[in-house]
């Protein structure tokens, strides 16, 4: 490695809880090995050392919610050879995208005496609405082993191997009894992308879709099932309005039940 310069990695934060970038520090067994092959050039949560860009890989956490951030993401894109966005905030706008279904000024004026001072965008939007994104890694939070896989893939010039099928596939493989069929618990597993290891059904509860819509989800059919389980329309709306509320298939489905 001595003759070759290490590729550089940068981590950036927008509106988020920090959990997805924490996933990198949660790779307790892999962190020092990762630091052996990449130079962690800009990761404020972990280091006060900052190397100037450009960077080989940028990991971006969080959604765009302010005019300042809407500009900052363009600068980051220009400095990054590969830009990977991590987590539900960065891929779908996150839980803070619930504001997108109302007028954000109503939130503000309900509580603040001086709404004219509030500088925020009306919507919380994913990074791909603003700049070209090389890869979207889903989850609230992301799966840390996925993160290692994505970094590994880009270091080796290949496509990340991340599943796009549903949580049901993982759930069946684990040998779980279907919570919805067996116990009538509402579950978003059939329309949700795999990645978590079907943890909620494994703990006897329904999936609430941390990983957002799978490829070609049939949300309409699932909403019908939820209805058959005596879920009221307002409950169905809330089910689709979670951490990936603004992902298009979920947004459309919740809006269909809001009418």
């Amino acid at each position: 490695m001595a003759s070759k310069k290490k590729p550089t990695l940068a981590v950036w934060k927008f509106a988020s809880c920090d959990g997805c970038q924490l996933s990198l520090l949660d790779c307790e067994d892999e962190l020092l090995a990762v630091a052996d092959v990449v130079q962690i050039a800009n990761f404020p949560e972990a280091s006060r050392a900052v190397k100037r860009g450009p960077y080989d890989i940028s990991l971006v956490e969080g959604s765009i919610t302010t005019p300042h951030d809407a500009e900052r993401i363009h600068k980051i894109r220009r400095m990054s050879k590969t830009l990977v966005v991590i987590g539900a905030c960065a891929t779908a706008g996150g839980i803070q995208a619930l504001r997108n279904f109302t007028d954000v000024r109503r939130y503000v004026s309900a509580v603040y005496a001086h709404p004219e001072y509030i500088e925020t965008l009306n919507k919380s939007t994913p990074i791909a609405d603003h700049v070209f994104v090389d890869f979207e890694l889903r989850g609230c939070p992301i799966n840390k082993y996925h993160l290692i896989e994505v970094i590994n893939a880009y270091l080796n010039g290949r496509k990340p191997n991340i599943p796009s099928y549903s949580v049901c596939m993982e759930c069946k493989r684990k040998g779980n009894v279907c919570v919805m069929v067996a116990t009538g618990v509402p579950c978003l597993g059939p329309v949700t992308q795999a990645g978590c290891g079907a943890i909620c059904p494994s703990f006897n509860r329904g999936c609430y879709s941390c990983f957002g819509p799978k490829e070609t989800p049939n949300t309409e059919a699932l909403a019908g099932w939820l209805h058959a389980l005596d879920q009221r329309p307002d409950e169905i709306v809330r089910a689709f309005r979670g951490f990936n509320a603004y992902a298009e298939p979920f947004r459309k489905q919740s809006e269909a039940y809001e009418k």
């Binding site: 509106a15 925020t120 609430y208």
Partner: peptide
């Protein structure tokens, strides 16, 4: 300068069982 995320506002209208997850 962390951007605010309006949790207390969008908690209104949610079900009480959702509070720990959200």
């Amino acid at each position: 300068f962390e951007p605010p995320r309006f949790f207390e506002a969008f908690m209104r209208g949610r079900h009480f069982m959702e509070a720990p997850d959200i």
